Simulated assay, not measured.
Amino acid sequence: MNLKVFILAASTIAVGLVELTVGGILPEIADDLNVTLGTAGQLITVFALVYAISGPVLLTLTAKIERKRLYLLALAIFFLGNLMTYFSPGFLLVMIARVITAMSTALIVVLSLTIAAKIVEPAHRAKALGFVYMGISSSLVLGVPIGILVADHFGWRAVFLGIAMLSVLSFILIYLFLEKIPSERVEPLSVQIKSLGSIKIASAHLATMFTLAGHYTLYAYFTPFLKTTLNLNQYWISICYFLFGLSAVFGGALGGTLADRIGSRKSILLVISSFAVVLFFLPYATFSFPVFLVAMMLWGALSWSLAPPQQNYIIQIDPASSDIQQSINNSALQVGISLGSAIGGVALEHTRSVVSIAHVGAGVVVVALICGIISLTSPYRVKQAGTLKQEG
Rank of each mutant, 00 (worst) to 15 (best):
L142F: 13
G143P: 05
V144P: 00
V144R: 00
I146Q: 00
I148P: 01
L149N: 00
A151S: 14
A151R: 02
H153V: 11
F154N: 06
G155I: 03
R157M: 03
A158R: 02
A158K: 09
F160A: 07
L161M: 12
L161A: 09
G162M: 10
I163H: 06
S170G: 08
S170I: 04
S170P: 08
F171Q: 05
L173H: 14
Y175M: 15
L176Y: 12
E179R: 12
K180I: 07
K180Q: 07
P182W: 12
S183L: 02
E184N: 07
E184Q: 13
E187I: 07
L189E: 02
S190E: 04
S190I: 12
V191W: 06
I193G: 12
K194H: 13
S195V: 15
L196W: 10
K200S: 04
I201S: 07
S203W: 04
S203T: 01
S203E: 01
A204G: 13
A204Q: 07
H205T: 13
L206P: 03
T208D: 06
T208G: 15
M209Q: 02
L212S: 12
H215P: 11
H215L: 10
Y216E: 05
T217G: 01
L218M: 13
A220L: 00
Y221T: 00
T223N: 11
